[in-house]
Each structure stands twice: as structure tokens, then as C-alpha cells.
Write a protein that binds this DNA or RNA. Structure first.
Lengths: 142, 142
DNA sequence: CGCGAATAGTTTCCAAGTAAACAGTTATCG
DNA sequence: CGATAACTGTTTACTTGGAAACTATTCGCG
């Protein structure tokens, strides 16, 4: 296919499709989406984080983040809180149910990480992570 | 962010967003989409290819391919032809206008390929391509 | 103070992409 | 031959994700 198979953009897209399939295969039957679990994951590590900060961290656009949060709140997994010191912002945290949910999902999520590197040696996996990182943040300041 | 930043799926997503931005920056002003130019590219190399074959090659799902083809036909860039020997299938080829369009876009498209590897040495770029390929096709038969 | 600029999140509207059901055509096999 | 299965692409209805315009709040600076 000529220059196409050399195109990082094209290759990344192919890889992304595969990893996406892996994700859903790993959560067979369970109704989770990548965006949801990553938000739960981040909130577990950073309780009370601001909605915008979480969105930036995960590269989720504000408009989409609003919807994601609405769904998670509706499902009872996270709670919103508007702090008095800045009433524009929204702080997010896991509910008890959200924590339980995350613990239920964690093993499968970690298993997926492992499955992702099938066919790659541990050394190659590290290399790949490092190179993708360079690709995503070319001028990252240390 | 814990295991998240180690997740290939997450990293790939970040990289994909950056390359997507690069793509549109490279075609500043021009109204092209990645799917469109890749189809034109493939049809230039394989005139008269079957619609389904092109879709498989580019990892585009049939339903989406139908829309893509409809738009490209509507724009006068490609032509559909139903061969008598298998009237279920559709053969695609570039129109003159499509060829011209591709030639107009080609320089910018190639420039984007170059820009993608900013921050990576040629050696690293090759390595990355190879590793992503392994990631996307873990059990690729030779 | 108070008014314009910046910030945080939301709403509205739209594009990309998919799954599932569908229609038409060809292959298969008794 | 004729019924059934398999294949090719399309349609419909939906989900994901985003850009742009909007609301509410806070900041900055005279």
C-alpha cells in the first residue's frame, strides 16, 4: 500500500482498533467503556479532583467530559461537589458504589494491560511505551 | 496516574490525538479527512479494487465505507462500477478529478509523514513502526 | 468598587464510526 | 433444477466524541 503502511498515523490507528477490541474482550459481558474506567481510576488516586483537571489529564474534551460525568453520577458511581471557594468548578469523587465497582473491574483491567503486550518481549514493551510517549509528547519538558 | 500511564491502550490514544491534530494542521484550510485521502491513495495504487477489499485493507467497517464512498462519488472524486460477473460487488476507481485531487494533496500528505516523527531519530522511527506493527498484528502470519 | 477579561463547565448541534437487520446476488449441494 | 447457505453492500438507529456558542463565576486592573 505504499507510503500508507509507513505512516505512523495509519499504523497507530490499526493498533488502536486492536487494543479497543482487546479491551471489550477483556470485559466480556460487563458494560464498561474505556473512558469510564479511566475516570474511575484517576478519581481513586485523586479523590476530589477538579473535573477539568481530570479531563485534561485523560485528554477528554470538556463537552465530552460533562456527558461522561453525568452518566457516572446517574449510575451512582461518582459524586459532584461545588466548592464554596470557586463556585464555577466541580470536584469529583468516587462513591462507595464507585469504589466497589472499580475493585470489581480492576483485575480484568490489569489483565488487559498484560494481554496488550502479547507478542512483545518485556523489553520491547518498554521500548514501545517510551517511543509512543515521545510520539505523543515530542517536546515534553523534563 | 499509576497503571494508566503504563497502559499501551491509553498511550496509543494520546498519540493518536496528537497525530490527528498534526494531520489537520498539515492540511491547513483544505477540507480533507484521513479516511478520504487514504481511500484515494489506495485507489490510485489499485484502480478497480473492490469496495470491500479496500475497506478491509484500511480497517474501515462496511457501513462506514458505504458513506465514505457515497461522499467521494458525490464529490466526483471516485467512480463506482458494478461488474457483470458479480453484480453484488462494486469496483472503485479514481476519476480524473480524483487523480488531480490526490496530486494536489500528495505533497502535504508526505510532509505530514515527516512531521509525525519529529523528536524521533530515523532509527527510533523505524523501531516504532515495527513495534506498533507487532502490536497491531500480534500473530501475523508471514 | 466596578467593568472587561479570563475561567469552568454546560448546552446545542454535528461528524465519525458501528452493529444489526436487510436486500440482492451468487455458490452449493442434495 | 431448486432450496438453502454464503457473500456484498446498504439502510437504520445508535454511540462516541467534538466545536462553537452560552451561562455563571471569578480575576485583574483602573
Amino acid at each position: 500500500m505504499g507510503a500508507l503502511t509507513q505512516s505512523l498515523g495509519f499504523l497507530i490507528r490499526l493498533a488502536q482498533v486492536r487494543l479497543y477490541d482487546l479491551f471489550f474482550a477483556g470485559f466480556d459481558g460487563v458494560d464498561v467503556k474505556p473512558g469510564e474506567i479511566t475516570v474511575l481510576w484517576v478519581l481513586d488516586l485523586n479523590p476530589g479532583a477538579r473535573q477539568g483537571a481530570v479531563a485534561r489529564e485523560l485528554n477528554i474534551k470538556p463537552a465530552h467530559m460533562t456527558k461522561l460525568v453525568q452518566r457516572l453520577v446517574h449510575d451512582g458511581l461518582i459524586a459532584r461537589q461545588v466548592p464554596p471557594e470557586d463556585r464555577r468548578s466541580v470536584l469529583l469523587s468516587l462513591t462507595e458504589q464507585g469504589k466497589q465497582r472499580l475493585e470489581t473491574l480492576r483485575p480484568a483491567f490489569l489483565a488487559i494491560q498484560t494481554a496488550e503486550s502479547t507478542g512483545l518481549s518485556p523489553r520491547e514493551t518498554d521500548q514501545l511505551r517510551s517511543l509512543i510517549h515521545k510520539l505523543a509528547f515530542p517536546k515534553d519538558r523534563p
